[in-house]
Simulated scan of single mutants.
Amino acid sequence: MDQVFKALADPTRRLLLDRLREHNGQTLRELCERLGMARQSVTQHLDLLVRADLVVVVRRGRERLHYLNPVPIHEIEERWISGFDKARLHVISAVKNQAEEYAMADKTSSETIPTYVYVTYIRASAQHVWQALTDADLTTRYWGHANVSDWQPGSNWEHRRVDGSGKVDVVGTVVEADPPTRLVITFEDSPDAPREPSVVTFLVEPHHEIVRLTVTHENLPNQAMLNGISSGWPAVLANLKSLLETGEVLPQAPWEMSPAHT
Score class of each variant (00 low, 15 high):
residue 162 V to P: 00
residue 157 W to T: 12
residue 171 V to A: 02
residue 168 V to S: 05
residue 176 E to K: 04
residue 153 P to I: 04
residue 172 G to W: 12
residue 177 A to R: 04
residue 162 V to H: 06
residue 155 S to T: 10
residue 145 H to D: 00
residue 145 H to A: 15
residue 167 K to G: 00
residue 176 E to V: 12
residue 154 G to M: 06
residue 143 W to A: 12
residue 173 T to I: 10
residue 167 K to A: 09
residue 152 Q to P: 09
residue 174 V to Q: 03
residue 153 P to T: 06
residue 164 G to I: 03
residue 173 T to Q: 15
residue 155 S to D: 14
residue 176 E to S: 10
residue 158 E to C: 04
residue 176 E to H: 07
residue 144 G to L: 06
residue 148 V to Y: 09
residue 164 G to K: 06
residue 149 S to C: 08
residue 157 W to Y: 15
residue 162 V to N: 09
residue 145 H to Y: 13
residue 155 S to K: 04
residue 146 A to R: 08
residue 142 Y to V: 00
residue 171 V to M: 06
residue 158 E to Y: 11
residue 160 R to T: 15
residue 162 V to F: 05
residue 161 R to Y: 02
residue 145 H to G: 01
residue 151 W to N: 00
residue 169 D to L: 15
residue 176 E to L: 07
residue 140 T to S: 13
residue 167 K to H: 13
residue 142 Y to P: 00
residue 172 G to F: 13
residue 178 D to K: 12
residue 151 W to V: 11
residue 144 G to H: 09
residue 168 V to M: 02
residue 170 V to N: 14
residue 150 D to C: 04
residue 149 S to N: 07
residue 141 R to G: 01
residue 175 V to N: 03
residue 144 G to P: 07
residue 175 V to T: 10
residue 174 V to G: 04
residue 163 D to Q: 06
residue 168 V to E: 01
residue 157 W to R: 10
residue 165 S to Y: 08
residue 149 S to A: 10
residue 142 Y to S: 01
residue 152 Q to D: 12
residue 156 N to S: 13
residue 161 R to G: 01
residue 141 R to W: 07
